[in-house]
Computed example of a mutant assay.
Amino acid sequence: MKIVVIGGTGLIGSKLVTLLQNRGHAVLAGSPNTGVNTLTGEGLDAALAGAQVVVDVANSPSFADQAVLDFFQTSGRNLLAAEARAGVRHHVALSVVGTDRLQQSGYFRAKQAQEDLIEAGGIPYTIVQATQFLEFLGGIAQSAGAGGEIRLSQAAIQPISSDDVAAVLADVALAEPLNGRMEIAGPERLRLAELVQRYLDLQQDGRQVVADPQALYFGAPLDDGTLVPAGQARLGTVTFAQWMAR
């Protein structure tokens, strides 16, 4: 089966391409540096010719409110239109657990717009909503403060490794469309501020995390239900300690 992975040269996409190739499928890694650009449409029709499944794991290069909205709306429309022309039978998209609960954030408003386009697009689909990646802990720290002090909520978080995300996406790509959403998360429920402090300490980073109930997460307030699955989720296997040991 031919499968196209949009964002196929990135963190998740490169792992997913390898997993699907190892299962014997013809996989094309679509990204601007391989001549496939969902923003301009360049190379899309040629890449999708003969494809049965498309997995979209691409992310916006900018998190600025208008830029990220433009990215997901333009990319989504171009991709879905090209899939319709090619007769694609399953559109798989990677999104974020809690997107609908984080709408004060421009990034999550853009992810909601992407999900809405997929729902209305007419292509059978599965939206995989993942919790925050363990690989993103450094970025969370960087976003939450400058200098020696980082202010973060103590809200619950259930982070997942990129390996676990890619493994689920491979299974989903080879399954029938859900025409709905599924949630995936890591095996441990932790506290955001405490987890980031553990990460910084193990990295021998001297910055200190201050637990602040009012601290915003990319512009949105958090509570214990915001960043964790709302229902029954498929859980990964890689713990924080195992991930750091790698």
Rank of each mutant, 00 (worst) to 15 (best):
L117C: 10
L117H: 11
I118F: 08
E119G: 08
A120E: 14
A120S: 12
A120C: 03
G121L: 09
G121M: 14
I123L: 14
Y125H: 14
I127H: 01
I127V: 15
I127N: 00
V128C: 05
V128Y: 09
V128N: 10
V128E: 12
A130Y: 07
L134D: 04
E135Q: 14
F136Q: 11
L137S: 02
G138Q: 04
G139A: 12
G139L: 10
I140R: 02
A141E: 01
A144S: 13
G145K: 04
G145P: 03
G148F: 03
E149H: 04
Q154I: 01
A155N: 08
A156R: 10
I157M: 12
Q158L: 02
I160R: 00
I160P: 01
I160E: 05
S161H: 06
S161K: 02
S161Q: 05
S162C: 11
S162Y: 06
S162A: 13
D163N: 13
V165G: 05
V165Y: 05
V165I: 15
A167Y: 01
L169D: 10
L169A: 05
L169W: 12
L169V: 12
V172Q: 03
L174P: 03
P177C: 08
P177M: 07
N179D: 15
R181I: 07
E183H: 02
E183S: 09
E183L: 04
I184M: 04
I184L: 02
I184R: 04
A185H: 06
G186F: 08
G186K: 02
P187A: 13
E188Y: 02
R189V: 14
R189F: 06
R189N: 07
R191D: 11
R191V: 11
L192S: 09
E194S: 13
L195P: 04
V196R: 00
Q197M: 07
L202Y: 07
Q204P: 00
Q204D: 13
G206I: 01
Q208E: 15
V210E: 13
A211T: 13
A211M: 03
D212Q: 02
D212S: 07
L216I: 03
L216F: 00
Y217E: 00
G219C: 09
G219N: 08
A220E: 03
P221N: 04
D224H: 09
D224E: 11
G225E: 09
L227W: 15
V228M: 04
V228A: 06
V228I: 15
P229A: 06
A230M: 12
Q232N: 11
Q232M: 14
A233L: 11
A233V: 11
A233G: 07
R234T: 14
V238D: 12
V238Q: 15
T239C: 06
Q242F: 11
W243C: 12
